[in-house]
């Protein structure tokens, strides 16, 4: 029966003999109206629910390769270890170099190798924390794949997104790659000790980050020289004891 032209309702008998291919309008338009990243977003919300239920404070660290994410993480772990259980998920295209550095600090770590993938997605993070099986009332760091573009679009279920930018990258990066700064809650400017030797002004970098996202909470640090790390860790501890967490 054809519901389009009503030909099945004819009282006389006849043979079409050619199916309904002749109907030019057997095409139907379906209104979908859905976000293309819906699947990832739903999985991310599922992760978020798990973290909230277990009081796990989860941070997604994003930056270009070489901006000092792992060094910052090492320094942060050295300060917070023993205060609460810490866990790390490492994302890299290849190698377990970063995971080895974290494991050397005696912190449970799970390495995700994305192969050709340029970012982590909620599903991979879900898989990783099932392996880690984090305790309640803990802190989970996700170190995203080094990339200042793609990780911006993929919610992982974290409580806060942190973008790290180092002075060696130049002070115009927030304007060149604004999406990741727009998505972030926190911006850590790293390698401030090197600024005097570079054509980079920390104040300009700061200003540009705020142009891309005026809500950013900014920290200026040198992870290698241990500058500003206390300030960052104090903020973390305040967040951990905040009633919303």
């Amino acid at each position: 029966m054809c519901g389009t032209c009503g030909c099945g309702k004819h009282h006389h008998e006849h043979e079409h003999g050619h199916g309904h291919d002749h109907h030019p309008d057997d095409r139907r338009t379906i209104a979908v109206e859905q976000d293309i990243l819906q699947r990832n977003n739903l999985l991310a919300e599922r992760n978020r629910g798990y973290f909230e239920a277990k009081h796990i404070f989860c941070l997604n660290l994003m930056s270009a390769p070489g901006s000092g994410k792992t060094t910052l993480l090492e320094e942060t772990i050295r300060r917070l270890k023993g205060r609460l259980p810490l866990y790390v998920i490492e994302g890299d295209q290849q190698t377990s170099n970063d995971a080895n550095r974290i494991a050397a600090l005696d912190v449970p770590v799970f390495q995700i190798n994305t192969g050709a993938g340029c970012h982590l997605e909620a599903a991979t993070v879900h898989h990783a924390f099932q392996h880690l099986n984090p305790e309640n009332d803990s802190l989970l760091f996700i170190e995203n794949v080094g990339n200042l573009v793609c990780p911006a679009m993929f919610d992982l279920g974290e409580a806060k997104k942190v973008v790290i930018v180092s002075t060696t990258e130049g002070d115009d990066k927030p304007l060149k790659y604004p999406h990741i700064f727009q998505q972030a809650d926190i911006c850590i400017i790293n390698k401030i000790d090197l600024a005097p030797f570079l054509n980079t002004e920390v104040a300009t970098l700061r200003e540009n980050a705020l142009k891309a996202n005026h809500r950013l909470l900014l920290f200026e640090v040198s992870a290698l020289q241990n500058t500003g790390i206390d300030h960052w860790c104090n903020w973390l501890e305040t967040e951990l004891t905040a009633p919303s967490h």
Partner: peptide, 17 residues
């Protein structure tokens, strides 16, 4: 500045047969 529009990434419709 708060973005009101322009970040959409949606599948609006499909035409099927």
């Amino acid at each position: 500045v708060n973005i009101l529009k322009g970040k959409e990434l949606r599948l609006k419709s499909i035409v099927i047969k």
